[in-house]
Design a protein around this nucleic acid. Sequence first.
DNA 1: CAGCTGTATAGCAGGTTAGTTATATGGCTA
DNA 2: TAGCCATATAACTAACCTGCTATACAGCTG
Lengths: 110, 110
Amino acid sequence: MAMSLAEEVSLDLEVMFKALASERRLQILEWLKDPAGNFPPQEHGDPHEHGACNQFIVEKLGVSQPAASRHLKVLTDAGLVIATSRKGWTYYRRNEEAIADLTRQLANDL
Amino acid sequence: MAMSLAEEVSLDLEVMFKALASERRLQILEWLKDPAGNFPPQEHGDPHEHGACNQFIVEKLGVSQPAASRHLKVLTDAGLVIATSRKGWTYYRRNEEAIADLTRQLANDL
DNA sequence: CAGCTGTATAGCAGGTTAGTTATATGGCTA
DNA sequence: TAGCCATATAACTAACCTGCTATACAGCTG
């Protein structure tokens, strides 16, 4: 059965573009490419598996904790980032599959 | 001399994402893939060479002429669309090279 | 289970975006 | 060149975004 790319992966381009239309959020995505390299060592939560600890992102962004929290929510709601809670901390990592789906669709459809 | 992709093509990702973060503007870009197919026949200005006549875009968008004008300005300022004035009318077409540059950079860097 | 700590939500202020109507601009055309 | 017609700009409003502080929530941990 034939489907358009949009149906196939059901990406909401407008939501994703809104999430990406922010220097702060682009910066977060960039940092999350290499959590271990961009953030201090963390005691719990493997940087490679679970991503970077929330608090490190807050500090590096240089905004208040609630502001950072909302940026991370925008990214997770758009499906670009995945949150993991563990022992009272929250870790964020890139959703590489979704990002690859997005760039693939853009290369074909934009 | 080595350059990052961002320097090489000097794309302002945030500006482009902001331009794309609008259902209306995504719609315009979609229509402009096939001006002859998506708009009425125009007397002057080859649809394929110069793009679609401004007035047709205004009508099809269903917003006021100034609102459409600003959407088109956002797209042209981001470099995604090219405007051509001719005999009193203005035509808009996709900047396929810029769009290809963008999707290429996203595939590599996002 | 009581308290503490990390994170999310509420509520507010300031700036930006997107729509409107009214008007200015600019270049054909007669 | 006088007028007209297509488009852009101005001015205003409503909605949205992003930052803040204060507070609620949730789940470890002693």
